[in-house]
């Protein structure tokens, strides 16, 4: 169980960042579900409650999601149900249960770059940017590629487009971590295929995505792209599945994902 010596509620982001970087074991508190499972001895627990980071709204052609928004708010918000074929609500709906999703936060879910993450996979196939207090705004792909640094994730910006998208995951039992997850999206003729829980963190299958842009979309083409995705990405083994199993799953889920998106009506 983790311990917290002091609890602070900063009045603004600069103060929160200052406290975070003052000492190595000063730590931001999201919903605490993950922190709770560890043994971290936290000096100052930084509670962001006073910073009003709990919102989902439209701004300047983007859907903006505050770091302290809960996964359940993301799952039930009309704006996210209506856009991108509801991929974001769909991606989180199998994470434990409603009362869990009411507590855990979007900011922590992205910042922590968990390999098993459902949300990162779904967000990576949209035009998502991460806004860090110190590091500024960058694409989610760039954020995932950076080494983990102490910073404060403030909000996420998702470009509001008519991108069609779908999300699929394979779980051994309901509410368990995904053995593999896949997100596929298409904007005009530009496709993005993302595979996560490999079990390492989500990545874009660039070669397979490009294949879909070149020619007419036939079943054969889809199968070739799914095969390519399973070959260009790496897979590992953990208690949930072997690398070989994940590779086979990847092919099947990517094929289904492409077919679902191809059948989507724009919204």
């Amino acid at each position: 169980m983790f311990t917290i010596t002091d609890l602070v509620q900063p009045e603004n982001l600069a103060e929160a960042y200052q406290i975070l970087t003052d000492k190595r074991n000063n730590t931001i508190l999201g919903g605490c579900a993950f922190l709770k499972m560890g043994k971290k001895q936290i000096n100052k627990g930084i509670d962001l409650t006073k910073l009003n980071l709990n919102y989902i709204r439209e701004q300047d052609g983007f859907i903006v999601i505050g770091a302290m928004t809960s996964l359940r708010e993301l799952e039930t918000h009309p704006l996210l149900k209506e856009n991108y074929n509801g991929i974001l609500p769909k991606s989180v709906r199998d994470i434990i249960g409603v009362q869990f999703r009411n507590g855990v936060t979007v900011g922590a879910s992205i910042y922590s770059k968990y390999g098993f993450s459902d949300l990162i996979t779904a967000m990576l196939c949209l035009d998502t940017e991460v806004e860090l207090f110190k590091g500024g705004r960058m694409s989610l792909a760039d954020f995932l590629a950076r080494p983990l640094e102490k910073d404060l994730l403030v909000r996420l910006w998702i470009q509001k487009t008519v991108r069609q998208a779908t999300y699929l995951s394979f779980r051994s039992s309901a509410s368990d971590y995904a053995v593999l997850n896949v997100a596929v999206s298409k904007l005009d003729n530009h496709w993005t295929i993302v595979v996560g829980a490999r079990p390492s963190k989500a990545d874009i299958a660039f070669g397979a995505s490009e294949m879909l842009e070149q020619e007419e979309l036939t079943l054969e083409r889809i199968e070739e792209a799914a095969q390519r995705a399973s070959e260009e990405l790496s897979f590992g083994t953990n208690t949930r599945g072997t690398a070989v199993y994940r590779k086979a799953l990847c092919k099947t889920l990517v094929k289904r994902g492409i077919m679902e998106v191809a059948a989507c009506k724009s919204n």
Binding site: C32, A33, K36, Q99, G103
Partner: peptide
């Protein structure tokens, strides 16, 4: 009014 897990929430919150 929202269902939550009391085992995962700090009392101060």
């Amino acid at each position: 009014g929202k269902s939550m897990l009391s085992c995962s929430i700090l009392s101060v919150r």
